[in-house]
Design a protein around this nucleic acid. Structure first.
Lengths: 240, 240
DNA sequence: ACCTGAACACCGTTCAAGT
DNA sequence: ACCTGAACACCGTTCAAGT
């Protein structure tokens, strides 16, 4: 629960524990083996301690994973340039959103742990940045909160959905042992093709789209729809 | 792995096991105690068997939870009336989306297990219904897949984000022991209020919105933005 | 075909004891 | 203040054995 303070880490024995060191190692382990693969015993061994030592710095596994996810989000925010003063809100939101998506794409376990309503540091920063951009639109102030959180929910929620199958410990398909993304898509495309066109008129004619789609495009398609809706609402077309 | 076939359930001993019975009991247990609270031992005891018996009907816990989530989705689809032939796509999508949100709101553990790309029966039905509605808009056919999946991602992903804190085993806030939703919101609103307005200009002036917001409104706000974007894209305003 | 229940190989977490 | 590591109270899953 306590951070190391006082002496610099190098002042003690090499590789002294600290919350930062533990979270860093946890991120690496999560990337490698997923949420189920992260174990206090394994993490402790990699840090040359016993499992009990970790509990001095971290309350429990939930907190550890939440801290790790927030660190991923922090990297994403650092990568996304703060928009200039005068820049359009829409483009600022777009670069912010895609930066977060890209980070979550590299750390698929993290997306579902970015909590809402925001409490951890970088989740707070993300929502504040979104809100600041939304406030630049012509929308009435009383709608800023609902719209900002909606955008924030879109970013993390949709990213989580898209990216979840990439997690090292994601549950596999009910039948196939398909392992690569292409094989998996080919397999489910085939299943869609075998459905009854009367019951599933849409899916049965969409199998090639499924097979060839790009995950990042999926994210931006919905995002652009959302931002387009924002435009249309901020600057409604005159009634005809 | 096998369904019961042949004799009707009542033909054997009362309360004979079957995949359906197991999934039904799992839903009840998940509602009551959350995903961590669902245990093969506990579930078996409630069904008057040993844990091993369940594995005859279900591959493992991942599959069990996925089946339970798909059942919840099925209930939602049954509740959402199929749109009439001529009805507008937008309104059809809206009733479908809110029906799913409402179901996931009642079963908060389910949202994150509605898988994508869709493979289970009711996830397939949902995406097909969305696609059929999207196909009614004036949008070019080659965009139908991307847009339909984007909407589907919005529905399940954003619902998952909004509804997750409601789950019986959701991780609690880092500091408070707040338990009711109101107490939790009041608590984090207070934390927002204590932030530095220079670093968090938006959040610090938005605490009352946080305190009084409605979760369902959050969902529909983003949904309406998305559908508005759909409108604007399907029927673009003439360039000025 | 379907069920039983003990057993295996783990977990997260605690805590007395050390330095 | 911080670390150690054994111990507790569980898990999911398997499997020989039953009916």
């Amino acid at each position: 629960m306590q951070r190391t303070r006082g002496r610099a880490p190098t002042g003690g024995r090499a590789g002294a524990l600290s919350r930062e060191v533990i979270v860093g190692a946890a991120v690496a382990l999560l990337d490698e083996r997923g949420e189920r693969g992260l174990t206090f015993r394994l993490l402790a061994k990699q840090l040359n301690t016993g499992p009990g030592a970790l509990y001095w710095h971290v309350t429990n596994k939930d907190e550890l994973v939440a801290l790790a996810a927030d660190q991923v989000l922090g990297d994403a925010l650092a990568a996304a340039p703060r928009p200039e003063e005068g820049a359009a809100a829409g483009s600022g939101l777009r670069v912010l959103a895609t930066a977060v998506f890209d980070a979550l794409d590299r750390h698929p376990w993290a997306a579902s742990h970015v909590n809402a309503p925001a409490t951890r540091e970088n989740a707070l920063r993300l929502l504040d940045r979104i809100g600041t951009l939304v406030a630049r639109t012509g929308l009435p102030a009383e709608r800023h909160f609902a719209i900002s959180t909606a955008i924030s929910y879109y970013i993390t929620g949709v990213s989580a959905q898209i990216v979840a199958p990439r997690a090292p410990d994601a549950p596999r398909a009910p039948d196939g042992a398909a392992t690569s993304r292409d094989a998996y898509l080919a397999h489910t495309a085939e299943r869609w093709g075998e459905l009854d066109p009367v019951d599933y008129p849409f899916l049965t004619r969409t199998t090639t789209d499924l097979r060839h789609h790009d995950d990042r495009d999926q994210f931006t398609t919905g995002l652009d729809l959302l931002l387009e809706g924002l435009n249309a609402t901020a600057d409604p077309r005159p009634p005809t």
